[in-house]
């Protein structure tokens, strides 16, 4: 990947991370940990991959995205706002009673949201339905989804995985946001879903293991998926709370809002990162 492109994605992801912190802070609730871990995947999808148009969010030929781990709505909303689907200034209405930015995404309320999610396991199955529709209609749009690694403990994920392979939905890419943590602790302690890659292979998927914070690896996986005759699962190893030192690798930040002091520290860390990236961009340009 071109260095400037990579720096641009890094910059956007850092802005998205700042929005995530402020959304959760302003709502005084929400899910920062998993939102931060999947931010680089979302950034790459929306800014370097998906065929979407913020001016025409219901375009029937658009690529679709389903946030199967719907609780990471702060990351999706921040990405959609940055992409131009709705004003970034609306993000601080997240989870408030008159806002369209529900705690978990609603497709009828939010421009750019392709499916209402929140109940784990259901999103990936609806994505299978969308991918099947593209095959029925002989359309070339692709369907993307992000699953939590805890989420794959839901049996429905495997029913959906079976159906996707059965109907040869090679237009479907599911990321597993493999941060190793869920609300109650380490995934291997709560209910071990390992070996994740082997399970998807056994279910008939094309499986690619990557670093979920490496844009080039994310992009390469997306390209490789296009050459497969099977649905693709990208097992993206990443860090819960990525980008905020005191949230990284701590499952306590799965569903907890920072206080003012913590918010300020998180924002100052991300601002420092942003300044670094901008300096590098200036050097490269």
């Amino acid at each position: 990947m071109d260095k400037l492109k990579m720096l641009d994605l890094q910059k956007k992801a850092t802005i998205i991370r700042k929005h995530i912190i402020d959304e959760v802070f302003s709502a005084n609730s929400g899910h920062p940990g998993g939102s931060l871990s999947c931010a680089d995947i979302l950034t790459t999808l929306y800014f370097d991959e998906m065929r979407v148009d913020p001016k025409n969010p219901k375009d029937p030929n658009r690529d679709r995205f389903v946030l199967s781990k719907g609780h990471c709505a702060p990351a999706l909303y921040a990405t959609l706002a940055l992409k131009g689907f709705f004003p970034e200034s609306d993000l601080n209405t997240f989870r408030k009673v008159d806002s369209y930015l529900e705690g978990h995404p609603n497709m009828d309320y939010v421009p750019g949201v392709d499916m209402s999610t929140g109940s784990l396991g259901q999103g990936i199955a609806t994505a299978v339905g969308m991918a099947l529709a593209a095959k029925i209609d002989k359309k070339d749009y692709r369907v993307y989804s992000i699953l939590g690694d805890g989420e794959i403990e839901e049996g429905l994920v495997w029913e959906a995985a079976m159906a996707a392979a059965h109907y040869k939905l090679n237009n479907l890419v599911a990321f597993v946001d493999y941060n190793g943590l869920q609300i109650d602790g380490n995934i291997t302690d709560v209910m071990n879903p390992e070996p994740i890659a082997d399970k998807f292979v056994a279910f008939g998927w094309n499986v690619i293991a990557i670093n979920g914070h490496n844009y080039a690896e994310i992009k390469d996986a997306l390209e490789a998926a296009k050459k497969s005759d099977k649905p693709t699962c990208v097992v993206a190893r990443d860090i819960k709370g990525k980008g905020v030192s005191f949230m990284e690798g701590d499952y306590g930040w799965h569903g907890k809002a920072p206080n003012q002091e913590q918010r300020d520290q998180a924002i100052s860390e991300l601002d420092a990162k942003l300044a670094e990236i901008e300096a590098e961009i200036a050097k490269e340009a």
Binding site: A125, L132, A133
Partner: peptide, 26 residues
């Protein structure tokens, strides 16, 4: 036959796949 799909013994999955299909106008 081209518009009938068997989802196997997986009713929960069938309902969600139905939702995904319907979201595209089916």
């Amino acid at each position: 036959p081209e518009r009938h799909f068997n989802m196997g013994i997986a009713e929960a999955d069938m309902m969600c796949i139905a939702a995904g299909l319907a979201s595209t106008g089916k």
